[in-house]
């Protein structure tokens, strides 16, 4: 499955994005992820890794089992994150 960049204007969760997806962070919703962290803590950690609104993100790699975890380019660094936690990142 490939993602048509021209049609990716719709809002989606980074946790659902496939390899090749490229977009920007729209919002952080810690409550979206079934994480062991509280919504506020998860959002804090995501911000500390550079996920702020407007940041450019691109899914570079996927793991073997369940395409999890994912390696995401956030501006100029690469971050590995499980899909479970990536559900907190709303992207456009």
């Amino acid at each position: 499955m490939t993602i048509d960049l021209h049609e990716s204007g719709s809002v989606r969760l980074l946790g659902h994005a496939r390899r090749g997806f490229s977009g920007t962070v729209h919002a952080l919703k810690g409550g979206n992820a079934e994480s062991s962290l509280s919504a506020a803590e998860l959002e804090s950690r995501l911000i500390e890794l550079g996920f702020v609104e407007g940041a450019h993100v691109e899914v570079l790699h996927e793991g073997l089992i369940g395409r999890d975890p994912i390696a995401v380019r956030v501006e100029n660094i690469t971050v590995a994150v499980r899909r479970r936690e990536a559900m907190a990142v709303v992207v456009i």
């Binding site: 062991s36 998860l42 995501l46 890794l49 975890p69 971050v79 590995a80 994150v81 936690e85």
Partner: peptide, 9 residues
């Protein structure tokens, strides 16, 4: 839930 796996590559 399992501890998060979030790390810079």
């Amino acid at each position: 839930a399992p501890a998060p796996f979030m790390l810079e590559l």
